[in-house]
């Protein structure tokens, strides 16, 4: 990998209450089945007929696949421009609606709180609500989590 571009997104880039729209992507049937085959081989993620008999009423992506796609949108739309320090975790995830083959998913980010680290002055934690929603505007995943970001270096 070549040298990474200088980060432009920092802890200071966030303000509680602000909402960001971070782009979208489309998920195919093949991707849904491939992911499920490797990580979540339950019939309702693999097989259309079995899925129709399940609570999902049709083939749907593994919830972990949806979270992977959420992460992809987060990296492409935000973290690629940050010096991300990873995430301590996620407080709550709810899979609200099935993700279907062909769905176009978009990510909306709402900043809840910005907490500078007490012990390490070079970083802080942003608390966010991440909403993945489909082409009909329905939220399919709602996640409350955190990202740790570097603070903007003093000029």
């Amino acid at each position: 990998m070549t040298a990474r571009p200088a980060p432009t997104v920092f802890f200071e880039s966030f303000t509680p209450g602000e909402v960001r729209e971070l782009g979208s992507l489309t998920v195919s049937r093949e991707e849904i089945v491939d992911f499920a085959r490797e990580f979540d081989p339950q019939p309702f993620h693999l097989d259309e007929a079995a899925a129709r008999r399940s609570l999902f009423g049709g083939l749907s992506a593994s919830g972990w696949h949806s979270l992977g796609l959420l992460m992809r949108l987060l990296v492409d739309g935000l973290l690629k421009d940050a010096d991300s320090m990873g995430s301590p975790g996620v407080d709550e995830v709810r899979w609200l609606k099935p993700v279907r083959p062909g769905d176009r998913l978009s990510l909306r980010l709402t900043t809840v709180a910005c907490v500078p680290s007490q012990s390490k002055p070079d970083r802080g934690v942003i608390h966010l609500v991440y909403e993945l929603y489909n082409q009909s505007g329905e939220a399919v995943v709602r996640m409350k989590g955190m990202n740790m970001l570097k603070r903007r270096p003093a000029a």
């Binding site: 339950q42 309702f44 399940s54 609570l55 999902f56 919830g63 975790g89 996620v90 407080d91 709550e92 995830v93 709810r94 899979w95």
Partner: peptide, 9 residues
């Protein structure tokens, strides 16, 4: 039957 989600990861 699946899962509604998870907490405190």
């Amino acid at each position: 039957l699946g899962s509604p989600g998870f907490d405190q990861l």
